[in-house]
């Protein structure tokens, strides 16, 4: 299903204490919001791409991702 792009500004934070660097958020984000550092730590590098589909949050096995819609 192709959704029209939704104009939302989303604040994405990753709790480094909880993150186990499994790579699932990076591996499945269709909008390339994340990149992985050399040690596998996910980093939010393209937050403006985020469409707030919430799948990274729901699929994060460690409850490490928080999404907040700012506008």
């Amino acid at each position: 299903m192709n959704r029209p792009p939704i104009q939302k500004t989303v604040r994405i934070s990753i709790d480094s204490r909880s993150c186990k660097k499994c790579g699932i958020c990076y591996g499945f984000c269709s909008q390339n919001v994340f990149t992985l550092a050399r040690d596998g730590t996910p980093e939010v590098t393209n937050p403006s791409n985020c469409t707030y589909c919430r799948l990274c949050d729901l699929r994060c096995p460690d409850f490490a991702i928080t999404l907040e819609v700012i506008s």
Binding site: K20, C22, I24, L58, R59, C60, P61, F63
Partner: peptide, 26 residues
């Protein structure tokens, strides 16, 4: 429904259990 003081959990990186626990609590 989560007991925050007990987190992070003991499951391996990428284990499905965390995803299922999230779905259950949602």
């Amino acid at each position: 429904y989560l007991e925050k003081s007990q987190l992070p959990h003991m499951w391996c990186p990428g284990c499905g259990d965390g995803i299922i626990l999230r779905a259950y609590t949602e």
